[in-house]
Each structure stands twice: as structure tokens, then as C-alpha cells.
């Protein structure tokens, strides 16, 4: 499958196979209003299969949000058809309004105007709600 390369934009590679749309949701990027190409279940020498997200234009990528959903992804910045910069996701200690708490007993579900804050579990790739300590499900 051939997908036209982008001229100026961002390529997120090594996204876990089948999760490209979920990644976009985490990054708060609306596929309906962004010029993008998704390659799903592409062969990968490293992981077997992978997804690739190519976006045209100056699309900001939240590397912390990316780290939560696709910690092994890579981000390449493309200018005039060449890669001019590469970034790795950075796993944050604390994330605000990226993950929503799904615990029905959590105060974030009922109190208005409250940020959804999650903190990282030390030594693990897992996050817990700052309010109720419930672990985020992924």
C-alpha cells in the first residue's frame, strides 16, 4: 500500500497496531478537521505490525499524552519533504485532562469544573486518579 508522503507536517510512527484512532483521541486531534493519513496494521520489523499517523501542517503533538497511550511511538517533524526533527514520548509524572476517571464513585464525575488529574504509579506504566486512586484502564 502506498500512501503519499507529506511535505510539511508530522509523522507518528510505531503506534501499536489498531490504536491509531485511540491515539488521535488522546492527542485531542480531530480526524474530521485535520489533513491526515492513517496506515493501520503495517508490517513492522520491531513489533510485527504497527500503525502510522501522517498529518499535514503544523499539528502540535502532546508528547506526554502520547507517552500514555503509545510509549514506544516516535514523532518525526517533516519540512519540505525531509525529516528535520525527531521526538520521543516523555512519560509524565502527572497528567491533567488527558485521561478521564471512570470510577462511578469518583468526585470528578459529579463536581463541576474539576480537572481530571492522574499521577504515575512509581515504577510502572500506570496512572491513578489523584482523587480516588483508581487506576486508569487502557
Amino acid at each position: 500500500m502506498e500512501v503519499s508522503s507529506i511535505r510539511n507536517g508530522v509523522i507518528i510512527d510505531h503506534v501499536p497496531a489498531g490504536t491509531a484512532l485511540e491515539v488521535l483521541a488522546y492527542l485531542d486531534i480531530d480526524p474530521a478537521s485535520t489533513r491526515l493519513a492513517l496506515v493501520m496494521n503495517a508490517p513492522s520489523t520491531r513489533y510485527g505490525t504497527k500503525d502510522i499517523i501522517k498529518m499535514e501542517g503544523d499539528v502540535p503533538v502532546d508528547l506526554e499524552a502520547l507517552a500514555i497511550v503509545a510509549p514506544r511511538a516516535t514523532v518525526a517533524i517533516v519540512e519540505n519533504g525531509v525529516i528535520t526533527g525527531k521526538h520521543a514520548p516523555t512519560l509524565p509524572d502527572r497528567v491533567v485532562n488527558v485521561i478521564r476517571c471512570v470510577n462511578p464513585r469518583c468526585v470528578t464525575g459529579s463536581e463541576r469544573g474539576l480537572d481530571h488529574v492522574f499521577y504515575r504509579v512509581p515504577g510502572r506504566h500506570a496512572f491513578r486518579c489523584e482523587y480516588c486512586d483508581e487506576e486508569a484502564l487502557r
Partner: peptide
């Protein structure tokens, strides 16, 4: 609700009033 005491503590912080958690849900 779980975490309600934390919300309360932050709300009272500016006034310098300490908040004691007397039980927040199953938390």
C-alpha cells in the same frame, strides 16, 4: 464521593482553613 475531601481541602486552602476527611466514599 471518593476524593471529595481533597476537593474541599483545596477549596478552603485560600482561606487557610484546614479540612479533615471524615470519610470519602469507599476511599
Amino acid at each position: 464521593k471518593e476524593g471529595a475531601a481533597l476537593v474541599a481541602a483545596r477549596a478552603a486552602e485560600r482561606a487557610g482553613v484546614p479540612v479533615i476527611n471524615a470519610g470519602d466514599g469507599g476511599h
